[in-house]
Design a protein around this nucleic acid. Structure first.
Lengths: 207, 207
DNA sequence: AGCCACTACCTATGTTCATAGTTAGTTGTC
DNA sequence: GACAACTAACTATGAACATAGGTAGTGGCT
């Protein structure tokens, strides 16, 4: 249900083709939202039929053409309305923590590998998001520049700050995951290094 | 794909009916994994056909009967194998941060409501998970007691510690979200209280 | 005896999403 | 002019999941 609003969000900047949008969902916006083109094209047609977008065939080279989608006033209204609607939180479904809960079933070396992969994954994301913030701050981010150019000056600060705030939240989340992963590595070591015999249960007095 | 392993994880404790499993996915385990019964029953039949489980019809009252599923050796092997396989991380799809990035489109009062809801949601979860840890620690948790009773004594510590570790990670995550939400509230206030006129863009020197 | 909450199980429908293709035109280059 | 890389768009299939129903038996209470 959120895909269409992610599309609307991008189309508030400028009209785009399905291909343009798909590319953004693969690269720049990919670390916040992802969607394959096979989902995007049908959704755009549906949204055009509902009046949220207008589709315009524009020429492309001598024989080709492409469809550019432009957000309508109704589209903007729908986006605004979604922005003013509280979202219901999806039920939990978390493979990482499901696995972590039963780590006693994995080989200690494999358990450590899980944690290592978790740490690396979130370090990578933290880096990506830090780059995003840098791009927002130094004016390198194209989408932001275009968005600001089309917005009233008194809104510029809001627009920038909320985007930075979003990525800061994602960085904070990644850092929590990294710390948890590091604690996991220590735990696995402490549980496999010590001989199991003299490990009393539920008695924190020894150690 | 993970549903069957969540089911196997629960069935390593004791044989259960589909109804039992569905109940657990609605209550005790619900804050880590959720699945509706309409998904569970077909999956159990599929798993039985694949040899991961055996289905046993047991009487229930004078005329009734119920199907109890028991994990097989192959089922245990499959679970162990999954536990020793690195999991691939799903592509990002995060409605909360999608919304946060475009908060300039929402009324300030609504933006604050979003953040408030986020904070409350994660406070609730933090509480639930803290209760889970308490239950694990004081022996109140039935599933854990049964699991320990069926396990070798030298494994008891691992089994307990990994479960606590998992919930600690979820608590840490919730706390990060709460902090982010609180910072969001402050940000919204600071952006709507100050007059927009004397708010220069990209010049951190004034302030 | 009637009623209700619960246990147990099943089915149908629609959406979202991943995966993996296909077709066709464009642009640049060797 | 052959080729590759890219742009543009579409289709098919199946898994996962949400939602919303239905049927039937049980146990307990009044």
């Amino acid at each position: 249900m959120s895909l269409r609003f992610a599309l609307l969000a991008l189309l508030t900047v400028e009209p785009m083709t399905g291909y343009d949008l798909a590319k953004r969902f693969e690269s720049s916006v990919a670390f916040v939202w992802h969607a394959p083109d096979s989902q995007i094209y049908p959704e755009l047609r549906k949204m055009a039929k509902e009046g949220l977008l207008t589709a315009e065939e524009i020429p492309w080279g001598p024989n080709g053409k492409k469809t550019q989608y432009r957000i309508t006033i109704e589209g903007r209204a729908a986006f605004k309305q979604w922005m003013n609607t509280p979202l219901e939180y999806a039920r939990e479904r978390d493979p990482v923590h499901l696995k972590a809960a039963y780590l006693e079933w994995a080989e200690p070396s494999m358990a450590k590998q899980h944690m290592q992969a978790h740490i690396e994954y979130h370090r990578m994301r933290r880096g990506q998001w830090a780059d995003m913030i840098a791009g927002l701050r130094d004016g390198t981010n194209e989408m932001l520049s275009k968005r600001l150019a089309a917005a009233a000056p008194q809104d510029h600060r809001r627009i920038l700050e909320y985007k930075i705030f979003t990525y800061q939240g994602l960085i904070a989340r990644a850092e929590t995951e990294i710390e948890w992963g590091l604690r996991g590595l220590e735990l696995i070591d402490s549980l496999s290094n010590t001989p199991p015999d003299d490990q009393p249960i539920h008695t924190p007095s020894s150690a």
